[in-house]
């Protein structure tokens, strides 16, 4: 082999080796993904901020979801999360706005939603009628160093107690601003806010409609992580949940292609829109109808559970552990139907 041939052969081999190296590198970069790619989830004990639309954010990870509306007037929180998460909740709010927390609106009296009432309210202050140093007015007209807590009257009654009785919750956690009308309007941050009494999992449930932003915060009327937590003792039934969901569906308007538009912040789980509220309503109605049919055929609660009337939804919404199991959900559906045996299937 001549020197020239040897030269070209060496160059060709070196080039081939380089090409193989490049090809191998590319192959490594393009390694097939696992069939379920990793998706970021909220770590336990952490509170994360999810932007919703405009001035509205969702805080996830503090028990029930918390809705934050921030603007020039200050901050409104829909629900306060669990009692032991207040510092994380407050730190998350501070990343959205440094304006004062003015209101906490409780969608219900449940601990996951109102447990942080007392500690979180103390982080804020009400809007004063007069400056604190104004000696001409009574204390009641000066600003109070505590955010106002709004709820439907029944939710207040469940947290408090008549004089002489022991209240379930400390006084500082009680709502100081209740309503007992169908709705309460609250203009704030140039947002038209309507707080609506919508009995559902309890009879004292509220939903909060941010009309300008077209966002509705609904508490545990919708739970994307599980079956609705119906509290029979607090006046909830499958039927009241369905009435609440139907009301919510009436309020929501999707954009073209049947999605987005009015956004719904559920009590737990991810942000949703109208079609997913409809799916949730259909799930509750179908399970309710099956249990009602089984009752009508003379089946006992144990027989109904054995027949698994929610079997097509259990993998998605059910669980056998934790504070709200599939069995407890069926118990509640059954008990609600027993309370209203003549109710029409809707």
């Amino acid at each position: 082999m001549s020197g020239t041939s040897r030269y070209w052969s060496v160059v060709a081999l070196a080039t081939c080796a380089l090409l193989m190296f490049i090809a191998e590198s590319v192959h490594t970069q393009n390694a097939p993904w696992a069939w379920a790619p990793p998706i970021h989830t909220i770590a336990r004990g952490k509170v994360e901020v999810v932007p919703v639309r405009g001035n509205v954010h969702m805080l996830v990870g503090a028990g029930g979801n918390i809705t934050i509306h921030a603007g020039n007037d200050g901050v409104i929180a829909v629900d306060a999360g669990a009692a032991d998460m207040t510092e994380q909740v407050w730190a998350a709010i501070q990343t959205i706005s440094r304006r004062p927390l003015r209101y906490i609106i409780n969608t219900s009296d449940r601990e996951d939603y109102s447990g942080g009432n007392e500690a979180l309210a103390l982080k804020g202050s009400t809007i004063p009628f007069r400056p604190a140093e104004d000696a001409r007015v009574s204390d009641g007209m000066r600003g109070i160093q505590k955010a106002s807590i709004i709820s439907y009257l029944t939710a207040f009654e469940r947290m408090s107690a008549p004089t002489g009785k022991v209240a379930p919750r400390a006084e500082g956690a009680w709502p100081d601003n209740t309503y007992s009308t169908p709705q309460k309007k609250l203009p704030f941050n140039e947002e038209s806010i309507v707080i609506m009494h919508v009995p559902s999992t309890t009879d004292g449930h509220s939903i909060v409609y941010f009309r300008t932003s077209d966002v509705i915060s609904v508490g545990d009327l919708v739970d994307m992580t599980g079956y609705p937590r119906i509290d029979i003792q607090a006046g909830g039934t499958a039927d009241t949940v369905l009435e609440g969901l139907n009301r919510l569906i009436e309020l929501t308007v999707p954009n073209r292609k049947s999605e987005a538009g009015t956004l719904v912040i559920p009590g737990r789980g991810r942000l949703v829109d109208q079609p997913e509220v409809v799916y949730y309503q259909q799930m509750v109605a179908i399970v309710r109808d099956r249990v009602k049919d089984m009752i009508g055929r003379g089946m006992t609660l144990e027989q109904i559970k054995a027949a698994r009337p929610s079997r097509d939804y259990d993998l998605r919404y059910g669980t056998n552990t934790g504070p709200w199991t599939t069995s407890m959900f069926i118990d509640a559906v059954y008990a609600g139907l027993a309370k209203n045996p003549g109710g029409e299937l809707r």
């Binding site: 790619p37 990793p38 998706i39 970021h40 989830t41 909220i42 994360e48 999810v50 969702m58 996830v60 999605e259 987005a260 956004l263 789980g269 991810r270 942000l271 949703v272 829109d273 997913e276």
Partner: peptide, 8 residues
């Protein structure tokens, strides 16, 4: 990928 908390 977005988090699992966003709208699907």
């Amino acid at each position: 990928r977005p988090s699992d908390q966003v709208r699907y």
